[in-house]
Amino acid sequence: MRQSVREELGSVIVRFVGEIDLEHSPEARRTLLDSIGRAPGGVVVDLEAVSYIDSSGIASLVEAFQAARKRGTRFGLAVVHPQVLRVLELSRLDKVFPIHATVEEGLGA
């Protein structure tokens, strides 16, 4: 898994590339939690290039989502790969996370 973090007008966009699994979810979790602390405009997680996620990756997203909510920071997912969306649906989290068609839509939400 690779990751990049960029800032746009007070929002942070975290882009992951590859597979978020047991090996990589601790790193993803740290990056997301760090981003929430410095994103007054909110955090958008770009999942366009994530082709696989497991329960540990989902747990990282849930923990970040809850940390953001506690701080009153917006947190959403964008461009979710169909395979990742299926895992969110299996977890019934597709109705919990704000899911945007594009990163730009997530920034404007």
Binding site: E63, L90, S91, R92
Partner: peptide
């Protein structure tokens, strides 16, 4: 309970569902 939104505990649920 999937209505209890929290990190963790999903792996066994996935196995049983899939």
């Amino acid at each position: 309970d999937l209505d209890d939104v929290r990190p963790g505990g999903l792996g066994t649920h996935f196995i049983r569902e899939l």
